[in-house]
Simulated assay, not measured.
Amino acid sequence: MPATSRRGLLFGTAAVSAGALLTACTSNEPKTEKQATDNAPVADDKPGKPVTIGFAGPQADHGWLNAINQNAKSRAERYSDVTLEITEGSNDTAAQIGQVQTLINKKVDVLVILPADGKALTQVGLQAMRAGIPVVNLDRIFASPQAYRCWIGGDNYGMGLNAGNYIGEQLRDKPNAKVIELAGLDNLELTKQRTQGFDDALKNYPNIKKVARQAADFTVESGQAKMAQLLQAQSQFDALWNHDDDQGVGALRAIAQAGRKDFLMVGGAGAKSAMDAIKADDSVLKATVLYPPTMAASAIDLARALGQGKGVSGMAELEIPASLTLYSAVVTKDNVDQYLPTGFN
């Protein structure tokens, strides 16, 4: 959870997915077909002043990042008054800085930036703001609040906290329960925040002990390899918290190959494959904790409102908030149908 989100406005899932900021469906089906979220309220859907939004994100080399791009595109297409200038995503900070500078030179009305590296992109965010172009900073936060008008993103600490609390409630009556953790990239601050949230939740359950942790790389291959190592090292445990549903695909392969069914698994992010497995209830995967890529759709809503000088429908303030932290809901078999439309491939 970014430090600035402590002063942010915390939205529950209902407020984000069906309230002032509409979540968008990640489906690639034609717009003529009714999507599952189309009946949710929209922040002032009436056509207004034309707005050109520049969108710059990292390379879509991961299911969640690809869903970010798709959410931004499909959301912009809903508005006849929005033109989206989208860059080719890059994980090279110098390349992404150049792409944002090109958008600044084009004099777009608003910028939405998901930086490959928030600290490295801070200066170009400042450049845009000083040029009179408001910036919506998406998820990975800039080092200075002067570099953006609004930040919107997920709650990494809350993601770990909710995963830990869910596991804790499942194991609260089991003496000497053991859990393990399959984390993401350890050099990322978000990974540390997810682990911290998880560890803090487990403090509420003195009967549970975390006995092992491995860091993977957010890929199917790394998830399978690291999970195989964990399974070999731990002959018995009761629950697994996996930070990422992409690497969870590999983790589930390793679990199936080992023939293990003696524990429950909680995933992270909200991939469609994970939700499908939860609904089928035929594997160890019993829940996933959301890190919704629909935040990109909400970022387009916010950018449009900024470009038109409006606030957010459903809120009393004349201006959009400075910060919005999305809620990390726990998806289980009981509520999976509600969240399936937001699942990403």
Score class of each variant (00 low, 15 high):
246 D>Q: 12
207 N>G: 12
333 K>W: 06
104 I>S: 04
246 D>Y: 01
333 K>F: 06
31 K>N: 13
158 G>W: 08
217 D>G: 07
262 D>C: 00
323 S>M: 05
152 I>G: 05
69 N>A: 11
121 L>F: 00
216 A>T: 12
215 A>E: 09
192 K>Q: 14
96 Q>W: 00
225 A>G: 09
159 M>W: 08
250 G>T: 01
37 T>A: 11
206 P>V: 03
140 R>T: 14
186 D>I: 03
285 L>A: 07
111 L>F: 12
144 S>D: 15
328 S>R: 06
10 L>W: 06
49 K>A: 13
57 G>H: 00
288 T>S: 12
345 N>L: 10
58 P>A: 00
218 F>E: 07
110 V>Y: 03
232 Q>G: 15
238 D>T: 05
282 D>Q: 13
216 A>P: 05
92 D>N: 15
93 T>H: 01
172 R>Q: 15
112 V>Y: 05
205 Y>Q: 11
246 D>H: 02
160 G>E: 10
30 P>H: 08
142 F>K: 10
205 Y>A: 02
232 Q>E: 15
137 N>T: 00
231 L>E: 10
327 Y>C: 10
141 I>A: 14
10 L>Q: 11
191 T>W: 00
223 G>Y: 05
80 S>Y: 01
24 A>W: 03
228 A>N: 12
139 D>T: 00
199 D>C: 04
4 T>Y: 00
146 Q>G: 09
215 A>C: 14
102 T>Q: 08
21 L>H: 06
315 M>S: 05
283 S>H: 03
322 A>C: 01
208 I>W: 02
108 V>H: 06
297 A>P: 03
315 M>R: 05
39 N>L: 07
240 L>C: 10
236 Q>L: 04
155 D>K: 04
190 L>K: 04
340 L>W: 03
125 G>H: 06
294 T>P: 01
173 D>H: 10
14 A>C: 10
284 V>I: 13
294 T>W: 02
286 K>V: 15
327 Y>V: 13
255 I>D: 11
300 I>A: 04
322 A>I: 01
120 A>C: 01
119 K>F: 03
55 F>C: 00
190 L>S: 15
161 L>H: 10
325 T>D: 12
10 L>C: 00
305 A>C: 14
67 A>V: 02
132 G>W: 06
195 T>P: 00
71 N>P: 01
331 V>Y: 04
326 L>D: 02
255 I>C: 12
210 K>L: 04
153 G>S: 06
